[in-house]
């Protein structure tokens, strides 16, 4: 219930806040470099993990890719289109933050990103990315 309330309040409060890559607290993934994160979220090199994206209407998504790849919404759309339609990569599945938190709490192989101040108990910050410019 608390999670739902936080997520419902998120869209405005997330703007300008720090974004962090997160996993379940007991995930075997203990560290992640920016290059590894780029490979997992952008290039579809996920190893055994399952990556998740927030919808592109969520400000945290633009903040995430600005921090991780220096690319805004239009640039990421272009890059994703190139990777998908050249058969090089499949984008992560899009789900909203509430669903993501639920999956993260259930699945130790799940990996996603959230505004840092919204990371709930049971979910661990793997790589803080700073605030959106």
């Amino acid at each position: 219930m608390l999670v739902v309330a936080i997520v419902c309040a998120r869209p405005d409060s997330a703007r300008g806040s720090e974004v962090a890559i997160v996993v379940r607290a007991d995930s075997a993934l203990t560290s992640l470099s920016r290059d590894d994160a780029y490979a997992m979220f952008v290039l579809d090199r996920r190893r055994d993990y399952v990556t998740y994206d927030l919808p592109d209407t969520d400000p945290a998504r633009e903040a995430f890719y600005l921090q991780l790849a220096g690319k805004n919404l239009a640039m990421m759309r272009g890059l994703r289109a190139r990777l998908v339609f050249s058969g090089l990569a499949k984008p992560p599945r899009q789900i909203n933050a509430a669903e993501l938190i639920h999956i993260l709490q259930q699945d130790p192989k799940a990996i996603g990103y959230l505004p840092a101040d919204l990371v709930p108990p049971g979910v661990r910050v793997l790589l803080p990315l700073g605030a959106a410019p």
Binding site: A74, G78, L79, A81, R82, F85
Partner: peptide, 13 residues
């Protein structure tokens, strides 16, 4: 460099 997405208008400005 855009040969694989030549027809994908969404992929470019």
């Amino acid at each position: 460099m855009q040969s694989e997405t030549r027809w994908v208008g969404y992929s470019r400005l």
